[in-house]
Design a protein around this nucleic acid. Structure first.
Lengths: 225, 225
DNA sequence: GTGGCATTATGAAAGTACTTATAGTGGAAG
DNA sequence: CTTCCACTATAAGTACTTTCATAATGCCAC
């Protein structure tokens, strides 16, 4: 699930981005109207978190344009002033939800989830790569149809990788996504190595045909061998 | 059964809330359109008692949005003016019942009950998992055909689990579903542990072939062993 | 190739977080 | 006033995570 955060207050962008990444969402950001419009024109997103007050134009205009273009992204608008006008206008323009600032991260995450679920067509679903499958809802992981028991961190790591097969994953980014705050300015990724090692052993021991390959100097990459 | 009261007249909220809580419903409240929409987006309710005239927007709009979102909550609309229009519009939009203000508490409770019953598939509906069955209507729980007596919280917890067999249930989410607001941002789930422990003992003592398993770091999971 | 530096891997120990157990307090209902 | 239930407090056991020390591997220059 790919999300675009459109917001000019950098501290808030930082915070929000962190929280959503931790949930496994793929997050990109834009801090003004023009760059947001550009990204939306070029890339496709599942969900847009859209501030109403933006440098360079109103978020509501952007929303209007999106809908006119037939963009399928779900839109959650946010507004600093707890303004009913914005809310009503926004929802009228086809926004999927409204969030008054300041909001709690937990709440944002819950709404995102509900958006994700709606767009994923409800029900249980599983990520699959090679002979490995992972179900976020039940916490179940199988290799070649056999259940494999993963601990929390191992599960989170695999969940992150399996959503981005074949993509290079920077260690710092992975750490940020899985551990969150714990990684303040760590230049030491021993804890990542340790967990990756355990995960590899379990996948390997179960006969997985996929592998977390190290890419020297960059990070990791989940590949199908 | 979790109910959201959407109503701006505080005295009425108070009264209604009290009456419903006394009946064993879990009650939350919202006093305007935005906060109601917010709660409905984030949490799930079995039933919504919805005033038509709200600060911030019309209850009918909210109802429309709910249905558009595929929200499964049953909706009972209330209206101060004994307006046929509201009634017709509301029911047309998919409301499950209509109540003209002022109403008697006894009547409200009766309608709630009937809505609850209807939503659970009329008649006596039971969730079944393994050799355990739970009837929301009658509060009856059986293990291998034998009645088992559960206290209220234990019942609510089992009900939550049995609707999501095999699914990971986060403690915070469970707490939210069973206890409602009570859990503001508790980082201490002793009260959950205590109840789960008792429920386990009863299920086990009755010879259930299902089990509330702890999944370290994730929460709980109802499994069939 | 070989040496040197940087990055990644490993196994075991130390540290931390999570879960359960038990007893008991407080409060609501009758 | 009494009883019963819901929750709290305390404590202890267990399981997971991170750290530490050390080893292995990859890259680059010569």
């Amino acid at each position: 699930m790919k999300v675009l955060i459109v917001e000019d207050e950098l501290a808030l962008v930082e915070l929000t981005s962190k929280a959503l990444k931790k949930e496994g969402f793929i997050v990109e950001t834009a801090t003004d109207y023009p760059s947001a419009a550009e990204k939306l024109a070029v890339y496709s997103y599942d969900c847009v978190l859209l501030d109403v007050m933006l440098p360079g134009g109103s978020g509501l205009d952007l929303l209007r344009r999106l809908k006119a273009d037939g963009n399928r992204a779900n839109v959650i608008i946010t507004s600093a002033k707890d303004s009913l006008d914005d809310k009503v206008t926004g929802l009228g323009l086809g926004a999927d939800d409204y969030l008054a600032k300041p909001f709690h991260m937990a709440e944002l995450v819950a709404r995102m989830r509900s958006v994700a679920r709606r767009s994923m067509n409800a029900g249980d679903f599983a990520f699959v790569f090679g002979n490995v499958s992972l179900e976020p809802d039940t916490g179940r992981v199988t290799v070649a149809g056999q259940d494999v028991l993963l601990l929390k961190k191992e599960f989170d790591i695999l969940k992150y990788f399996i959503q981005r097969p074949e993509h290079i994953v920077d260690k710092a980014v992975l750490a940020e996504a899985v551990w969150g705050d714990h990684v303040d300015q760590a230049d030491d990724f021993q804890f990542v190595y340790a967990q990756v090692k355990n995960l590899r052993k379990k996948l390997d021991g179960a006969g997985a045909d996929i592998e977390i390959r190290s890419v020297y100097g960059f990070g990791y990459k989940l590949i199908n061998r």
